[in-house]
Design a protein around this nucleic acid. Structure first.
Lengths: 240, 240
DNA sequence: CCAAAAGTGTTGAGTATACACCCATGA
DNA sequence: TCATGGGTGTATACTCAACACTTTTGG
């Protein structure tokens, strides 16, 4: 009932059992889990790893793990991605923290969810080192996920959709150089709806963030002008 | 006594005395900190408590504390508010998690920041039990804050401003019954800019969430119609 | 009857949407 | 020359912002 009494008791027990070392009260641990997206072949894909240990062994989940003392949450997320998929350069953004004690039946772990974006070239270089398997799934065809990771996935996709509308976040899903058609296809893929080409071009141009590059992409038909984002740091834009 | 806390203790002690070399690696702890807002006398105010222990003793901070094994983050935030300010009924929304190891020089604590809203009547009932002092400060006149709490405050105020524009979140800062002038003053206070009364009324009415109540508020001058929110659960609105 | 707050419409500017045809190239 | 994807402009509907006077009450 009285919290002060509980704290006091905990301190006493700690002192008795600790002797030289002060025993800490058990507390929930902190983990990070990253929902990593990439566009490949006009499909939105998501990186999953197959768990090897614990009650959820064999199930698929987002790469992540416990945070260490002395590192920031972002650092922990990047470290886990490097370990799990050999990924280095990518965009990371914190989403939300999930603290339901029952989300992991094994232990009380608070998970800080992250949204990660990488371009197709970076995604291709991914390879699982830490897990039994790691591969890219189409978001519409993901297997059942461990823990509450399907909830985290929902958050991530919603955030991505929403930020496409009012930021330049798309630059993190594209190669440094791209055509307008590629940019439009990215938007259509993520937002799951077709876009009017002329209106889309006008909106994007109004942002003033694209710079036109000298060359052309030559393909089977009329060559397309090349573009790049002027700034790759995310910034808010008045669009939508 | 708190069952969860006791169980946790027993688990900890037996693990220690059992001789099993499962010594846990030190991990960051998880805390919650709530930026609690209320409107009083046309001013936006924020509840702070004065810390009694640790390196930051004497400094002001948002009410919060460590999360316990077995409780959700929301539950932890509500428990701390009940302990710190005897507050029960209020709106809570998770903001962001702050994990910089140096944010608390004493230990690595990851803090999950919360935005809390309460109406003036609820705010008036607040009284600090756990801390040396607890009181409401105008947001423009807050003292220097402990840890990184001024960063959390920025997040909270920005989130509140933003959600006023596209949700019915305002209902949590008002009494169940209010006049249109009170609602408008709330918006003007939080957003720090004057609003056009006619445009504002049109926008709010377009939301379709207010219901007009039969009575009138009688004052020194022309009586004002009374309103209430139809739903107090937060929902997204097309406004702005 | 006067002071003070409550209540009410219209207009103009800018923005978003819908829509169809010509262009440049490789095969 | 034709098939294919690249590239462009306009007309309309709608939304947002600016703006001032009348109404109702208490004192």
């Amino acid at each position: 009932l009285d919290d002060v009494a509980v704290e006091t008791l905990q301190h006493q027990v700690s002192a008795q059992s600790g002797g030289v070392r002060v025993t800490e009260i058990a507390r929930p641990k902190v983990a990070v889990d990253t929902v990593l997206f990439a566009i490949e072949g006009g499909r939105l894909k998501c990186y999953l790893v197959q768990l090897t240990a614990g009650a959820a062994a064999g199930k698929w989940a987002f790469p992540g793990g416990l945070v260490r003392v002395g590192e920031t949450l972002d650092e922990a997320a990047r470290r886990e991605l490097k370990d799990a998929a050999s990924l280095r350069e990518l965009y990371l953004e914190q989403l939300f923290s999930f603290g339901d004690p029952s989300r992991d039946p094994g232990a009380h772990v608070v998970s800080v969810g992250y949204l990660g974006l990488i371009d197709a070239a970076g995604a291709a270089s991914s390879c699982s080192r830490k897990y039994a398997a790691g591969r890219w799934f189409e978001v519409a065809q993901m297997p059942a996920l461990a823990y509450d990771h399907s909830v985290i996935a929902d958050y991530a996709w919603r955030r991505l959709k929403s930020k496409l509308e009012y930021t330049n976040i798309a630059c993190n899903l594209l190669a440094p150089t791209f055509t307008f058609a590629e940019l439009e296809e990215l938007y259509a893929t993520v937002l799951e709806r077709p876009l009017d080409r002329r209106n889309f071009r006008r909106r994007i141009m109004a942002m003033g963030l694209l710079k036109r590059l000298p060359g052309k992409r030559r393909g089977a038909h009329r060559p397309a002008a090349l573009y790049a984002f002027g700034r790759r740091s995310v910034q808010m834009i008045e669009m939508l």
